[in-house]
């Protein structure tokens, strides 16, 4: 991934057949898609209600905010950085959004404000990483504490209710499909095409692959990192737009372990933690897979006490299967 002409990611080997090239370029996405299909087939034979429209909505629309946040997270990880403060950020943004809506601001302002505020806060994080030369895990561990403690100090965890009905974006449907699904699909495709086909998008892969080489090739690495964090913050804001409007009450606290769920979706979705490879289609599929596993466990009556063990086990299996595939490919 060193030289600029290799920016195009994922890279294709021209001599192999089209199918082989697709499998090689999108192996992880295919593994996860296959896992989703297998899960749906197996579970629906045990309990056909699993495939009901409502349940598909619950799985996909109910977890779309995770997939959306994972898009931004994937970009950050592709450039070789990480953000462990995203859960706290979403908690803060949801509180701001809810309070704006209740205070009588126009609904669209309550929706849009998190996007800009998220971009601004993450921009600070990005600047500390790029220009302060701090490892992103250090900055975001610090931000996690600051955002979480700050939110508690300011709100005391008060419930926000009496939200205007027009605010409930995530409960609306367009053409029969819940809004969160539209958001998830459109943003995933847009981000995927943008990262694949624009110079900016491809530069993210170059920076993650080898920052020095990227710099030598004329990519403004520092500026790109700040911009990537800002885009990530904006995606956290869009995720908030869905997250905060799902219910008629908002509790101004930080959702527990949300950052872990989002990071897991990104990395299991094939975004290399070392930077440089992966797509947001993979992270979105992974977000759906985890949500589906959680739901499936209830449908097949796995003991609730063992639920998390089974989920952890399935995550490991997915990772190991993918690793076995990559190792085999590597040897070829």
């Amino acid at each position: 991934m060193a030289a600029p002409d290799l920016h195009a990611a994922p890279d294709f080997h021209p001599k192999r057949s089209l199918a082989a090239r697709i499998v090689s370029a999108y192996g992880q996405e295919i593994v996860i898609a296959a896992a989703i299909v297998a899960l749906f087939v197996v579970v629906s034979t045990i309990n056909p209600r699993f495939l009901g429209t409502n349940n598909l909505n619950t799985i996909i629309a109910g977890n779309a905010y995770i997939a959306v946040a994972a898009i931004g997270m994937s970009m950050v990880i592709i450039t070789g950085q990480i953000d462990v403060s995203v859960g706290a950020l979403i908690g803060v943004l949801a509180t701001i959004s809810g309070n704006l809506a209740v205070s009588g601001a126009p609904v669209w302002i309550a929706w849009i404000a998190p996007v800009f505020i998220g971009a601004a806060i993450s921009g600070v994080t990005g600047a500390l990483v790029a220009y302060g030369r701090l490892p992103s895990i250090v900055v975001t561990l610090g931000m996690l504490s600051i955002l979480k403690g700050g939110l508690v100090s300011v709100t005391g965890g008060a419930w926000i209710n009496h939200l205007p009905p027009a605010f409930q974006l995530a409960q609306q449907r367009w053409l029969g499909l819940p809004v969160p699904i539209w958001f998830m699909v459109a943003l995933t495709l847009l981000a995927f095409l943008w990262m694949r086909n624009t110079a900016f998008g491809r530069s993210l892969y170059a920076i993650g692959g080898n920052p020095e080489a990227a710099r030598a090739a004329g990519i403004p690495v520092e500026r790109r990192i700040v911009q990537t964090f800002m885009i990530h913050g904006a995606f956290a804001g869009i995720a908030t737009m869905i997250f905060a409007t799902q219910l008629r009450v908002i509790q101004s606290t930080v959702p527990p372990n949300l950052e872990l769920t989002i990071i897991t979706a990104s990395v299991i979705g094939g975004v290399s933690i070392l930077g440089g490879t992966g797509t947001v289609i993979g992270s979105t599929l992974a977000a759906i897979l985890f949500a589906a596993i959680g739901s499936a466990m209830i449908f097949v009556n796995v003991s609730a006490y063992w639920l998390r063990a089974v989920i952890g086990f399935l995550i490991l299996v997915t990772v190991l299967v993918d690793m076995a595939r990559r190792n085999r490919e590597f040897r070829q």
Binding site: V267, I268, I273, L307, R308, A309, G312, M323, R326
Partner: peptide, 26 residues
């Protein structure tokens, strides 16, 4: 298996906690 440490231990983070919950039955 050449799994990056972060991914491997993210997986076992869920697995080990799950085993703890499963064995203890709360």
């Amino acid at each position: 298996f050449r799994v990056p440490a972060l991914i491997a231990t993210l997986g076992t983070l869920a697995l080990y906690r799950g085993i703890a919950e499963g064995i203890s039955q709360a």
